[in-house]
Amino acid sequence: MPGHDDEALSLDLYRICGGHLNDCKGAALMIDVLPKAQALLADRGYDADWFYAALTESGITPCIPSKANCKAPIPHDAVLYRQRHRAENMFGKRKDWRRAARSLR
């Protein structure tokens, strides 16, 4: 999905998952609306066997580090995972600009 659709999807997922839900519960809500992708980068909050299985079934390679208390850690692509900061930075900039816009009101 190019351009506007990607932005709309990001905002819809943000509205669905907000900050008040456990990451795995939010993942359950968004699994059906994920766009086609080769891989999904996520933090340890999304480390759940059912989520790995759902992603794999959808043809998406999960790149999620295992939680520290995981008895059988699942390996992930550490080089690819380091790229997650780009998405984090984008949301950080969005928050900064929103704060700046509110201060001008």
Score class of each variant (00 low, 15 high):
Ser10Ala: 14
Arg82Tyr: 12
Leu55Thr: 00
Arg84Gln: 12
Lys67Phe: 09
Val33Leu: 15
Ser58Tyr: 03
His4Ile: 11
Ala8Tyr: 01
Ser58Pro: 00
Leu80Ala: 13
Leu9Tyr: 03
Asp32Ile: 07
Met30Lys: 07
Ala37Leu: 03
Gln83Arg: 12
Ala48Gln: 09
Pro75Arg: 09
Asp96Thr: 07
Asn22Ile: 02
Leu34Val: 07
Tyr81Asn: 04
Leu21Gln: 09
Arg15Asp: 08
Arg102Cys: 09
Ala28Gly: 07
Ala53Cys: 03
Ser58Trp: 03
Pro62Trp: 03
Ala28Arg: 15
Leu55Phe: 07
Ala68Thr: 04
Arg98Met: 14
Pro73Gln: 05
Leu34Thr: 02
Pro73Gly: 06
Ala53Leu: 10
Leu55Tyr: 02
Val33Asp: 05
Val33Met: 13
His4Tyr: 07
Ala42Glu: 01
Gln38Glu: 13
His4Asp: 12
Leu29Trp: 13
Ala42Val: 02
Gly19Arg: 08
Ala48Cys: 10
Lys25Trp: 10
Ser103Val: 06
His85Gly: 00
Tyr52Gly: 01
His85Asn: 12
Tyr52Ile: 02
Ala101Lys: 09
Phe91Gly: 00
Ala54Val: 06
Leu55Gln: 01
Met30Thr: 02
His4Asn: 11
Arg99Gly: 15
Lys93Ile: 12
Ile60Trp: 05
Ile64Cys: 01
Lys95Asn: 11
Gln38Val: 03
Arg44Phe: 11
Lys25Glu: 14
Arg82Trp: 10
